[in-house]
Amino acid sequence: MISTIILGALVGFLTGHIMRGEGFGAIGNIVLGIFGGIVGRFLFGVIGLGPTGLIGDIIAGVVGAVILVYAFGETRRRRHR
């Protein structure tokens, strides 16, 4: 559980730097990192590249979190039009 939170925080932090201006605060980034890991693992599994090890989990998490941040950003932008 603690390792998931730490990994989620790291993934959220990295995603915040990749997707500038789309941060969700510390807690939001941790949650986003955890869900990003789930999404990333699923997507990598679908294409046959199941992540292995800590580095694989980080990469999958960041990819998933970037996709989630992009999707949430687009949803927000569409609501404000």
Rank of each mutant, 00 (worst) to 15 (best):
F24D: 12
G21I: 09
I30Q: 02
M1V: 11
G50I: 12
G61D: 03
N29T: 05
E22L: 09
G53I: 12
G25T: 01
L43T: 05
G25W: 00
I6D: 05
L7D: 07
I59T: 10
A9Y: 11
G61C: 02
R79S: 13
V31Q: 08
V69L: 05
V63Y: 01
H17Y: 10
G16W: 07
I55A: 14
V62I: 14
G12Y: 08
V39N: 10
L54H: 05
G16V: 06
F42G: 09
R81M: 13
A9H: 11
G23D: 08
R79C: 08
P51K: 01
V63P: 06
I67Y: 00
L68T: 01
Y70N: 02
R76V: 14
L43M: 14
R81Q: 15
F72H: 01
I34D: 02
G23W: 05
D57S: 14
R20E: 14
G8V: 08
V63R: 03
H80K: 11
H80F: 14
E22I: 07
R41V: 10
A71G: 10
G12V: 08
I18E: 03
G61P: 04
G37Q: 06
G64C: 00
E22T: 13
T15M: 12
V66M: 09
I18H: 05
L7E: 09
E22Y: 09
P51I: 04
L14P: 00
M1Y: 06
G40Q: 14
S3V: 07
I67M: 08
V69K: 01
V62R: 00
I6T: 14
G73T: 02
G64M: 00
G53L: 02
I67G: 04
S3D: 12
M19H: 02
T52A: 14
V69T: 07
V11T: 15
Y70D: 00
A60Y: 04
N29V: 04
R78G: 10
D57W: 01
G12S: 07
I6W: 03
G48A: 15
T4D: 09
G16C: 06
G33L: 11
R77V: 13
T75W: 03
F42A: 13
L43S: 03
R79E: 14
R76P: 00
M1G: 15
L14K: 04
E22R: 12
V46T: 10
